[in-house]
Amino acid sequence: MRLYFEVARRSFQRHLTYRVATLAGLFTNAVFGIFFSSVYRAFYQDGERGVVADFTLPEILTFVWIGQSLLMLVYLWNWWEVADSIRTGDVVSDLMKPMDFQLYWLSRDLGRASCHWLTRFVPTFAMGALLFDLAWPGTISTWLAFFISVNLAILVSFGWRFLLNLSAFWLLDVRGINTIAVLVLNFFSGLLVPIAFFPGWLRTVAEWLPFRAIVMVPVEVFLGQRTPQSALLIQAFWVVALRLLGQVVLNAAVRKLVVQGG
């Protein structure tokens, strides 16, 4: 346990040093947050509609800004550290160490996520709250449930990214699978449009996939559209399922692994 904590702590500190990149990232989040907010505001004004698919305008703006705040926290795009270590062969020394390979990478990711809670989530959400009228939860318990749900979202996201990275054991070049993964995630996590807006059959597809547990479910908890119990159930299921699947794939990969050099 001590080891994993230490790994997480170092990863936290390493991410804390990227100051310019953090400011640049916050700027980008703000730009896209303002862009999406402007689009939704204009849509709602044109239709003179109060509620669309269970979302009022302040609620949809809240969805926009939670989405922008979550982006780096759940590290949706372009995390290929495990794949890189597979490509360079460094993975061998990690596999030989007396530790759980998946837990080791999870610790690194949790260290990173704790840093991004402070440097990315909080400032981005605060900007949204300053610039637009958002919908706020009425009770402390909803805030608490949201906090738990976001942390579970990080675990689901890690499970998925870890699996994707393991594909490097079989594929020489992961750029192709990366592009496909990004588009599936963007859409089925509910990042682009809330899943409640989807036509019926597409919503059914989205509900069977793990991706909504990464963005949409925390948003629904925050807005009180989903009970904390149901969110917990969905997210915990995917955390466990992806962790087990990751282990199975990892075992298969290690069995076929051949390394050059000594």
């Binding site: 689009v39 849509f43 239709g47 192709g176 588009l183 963007n186 682009l192 449009v193």
Partner: peptide
């Protein structure tokens, strides 16, 4: 994938128009 990333954005726009009609 590059085709698809934009395609998915287009689907998102169409979904929004299915609810709102105009912007």
């Amino acid at each position: 994938g590059n085709f698809g990333v934009n395609f998915v954005e287009l689907i998102a726009i169409l979904i929004l128009f299915s609810h709102f009609g105009a912007i």
